[in-house]
Design a protein around this nucleic acid. Structure first.
Lengths: 248, 248
DNA sequence: CGCTCGGTTGACTCGGGTCAAGGCCGGTGG
DNA sequence: CCACCGGCCTTGACCCGAGTCAACCGAGCG
């Protein structure tokens, strides 16, 4: 199903960049981290990266592309619980040696790097800061999930979409993936946005149009640009604090 | 503000029980865990246990009572992100040495045990299983948050309330806190339930009544009983798998 | 060339929010 | 002992944000 070709990683530094944004790493630790994540596997859009309930033997990092974590309701509806951007870990199950509690799927053609958990464990012995970095990433993850919970619990459609766009803008910026003019790629369907935000496709569509009319966001041909970030942040109550890690 | 009286802990074993339900601990590790958590501080209802943004110097465990984690929307609405039951850790910030990203408040008069993080760190050196147990608890926490996200994203009011009651029933059972006849204490107002489920107080009220009429749940005088647990689970799509840890 | 997928639009419906008022305690002070 | 008051629960009337259903368009593709 998936291609098994290993490819060298052009943008492999997103992973290092991510870790460093969260904990300051020694030169040696950086090299160790970079070395273990040097190869990636291409994944076509809509393919699973991790299957729900699977006990993964490797730690997976998105190198390029776009992915999401999700769970299914018994009714059949899919709820997206998080978007995975380049540099992000796909699943944190390994931290507690638990199987994955949710699926991870590529939303656009992606490249995924992997490290064997045992190998990682032995590297971590030598560079404990790496583990600290991973735990920080997990904490930020958790914060993001809770922020989404806030959206579903207390924000209306306009604020939800606006808030998500602000978050993605911020994270893409951190990952160094903004185009010029502050725009960024959002290779996702409106229906998928709705699955994350608890909105119907139709209503996502109308909401996006309202944002455009308000001059707060444009989303065409899979590219989002935010002409007035502070305005959008104000409308949607976005405060990036929850995405930052306090360097103690 | 809070009373500073330290009290001996009658039900201090909920903590041990919780850890053991998640990882099997050696006798020595059990004793170490029990010993560090031998005293608790009483907290009146509505008092803060942890303030948002605070960098906690101790690890706090709810010994008895009932508490919640929450965040505020800019608009002023409060979103409860989790309920904390006896035996549960109040906050996991210490795992990544981050400050608390959310507040924790007692919903009924409670007793909270605490261990200094440094002390805990040194105990963990000797009994790594304890850390494993804590990480498992954190993972389950995360699962619960996501399940709440599923509720807000895709379940209607009846299912949300039903699902939450199923979850609390299950967790109270695990903690050994069921009364006879499968009933359990729920010392929470309908308004607070609404703050967790993204519903107005009024609608929570009507929903609870509907559940009673359906013969699926009764909630009177702060005591919940579920005459037909499988029926309620079916209605609300409850599957306790997400609350269990797979003993590898 | 026709099919499918994603985006767009309109008409209609409804679950749940809001507002407002009343009832039932338990606590407090005169 | 009683009057009062503030939480919390309850109920009714009304309204609106968002879901649903259905149709259409354009683009990519086998």
């Amino acid at each position: 199903m998936n291609s098994n070709v290993a490819v060298s990683v052009p943008g492999g530094d997103v992973w290092l960049r991510r870790l460093s944004s969260v904990v300051s790493l020694s030169r040696a630790a950086q090299e160790a981290a970079a070395e273990i994540m040097s190869l990636g596997r291409p994944i076509p859009a809509r393919d699973h990266i991790i299957r729900d309930g699977n006990r993964e033997t490797s730690i997976k990092v998105l190198i390029s592309g776009f992915a999401c974590r999700y769970k299914f309701l018994p009714a059949g509806r899919r709820q997206i619980t998080a978007f995975v951007l380049p540099g992000d870990l796909c699943d944190f199950g390994f931290v507690s040696s638990s199987p994955a509690s949710q699926g991870v799927m590529a939303l656009s053609p992606s490249i995924v790097g992997a490290v064997d958990v045992d190998r990682f464990a032995s590297i971590v012995e030598e560079y404990p800061d790496l583990m600290a970095a991973v735990l920080r990433c997990a904490a930020i993850e958790q914060n993001a999930t809770q922020e989404l919970l806030l959206s579903l619990g207390g924000r209306n459609a306009l604020q939800r979409v606006g808030h998500l766009l602000c978050e993605l803008h911020f994270r893409m910026q951190s990952a160094g993936l903004l185009r010029d003019g502050q725009a960024f790629d959002l290779p996702v369907t409106q229906s998928e946005l709705g699955e994350a935000l608890g909105l119907s496709t139709v209503h996502v569509n109308r909401t996006v149009q309202t944002l455009r009319k308000l001059g707060l966001a444009t989303w065409r041909d899979r590219v989002v640009s935010l002409p007035n970030p502070p305005g959008l942040a104000a409308l949607s109550g976005f405060d990036p604090a929850y995405l930052k890690s306090e360097m103690a």
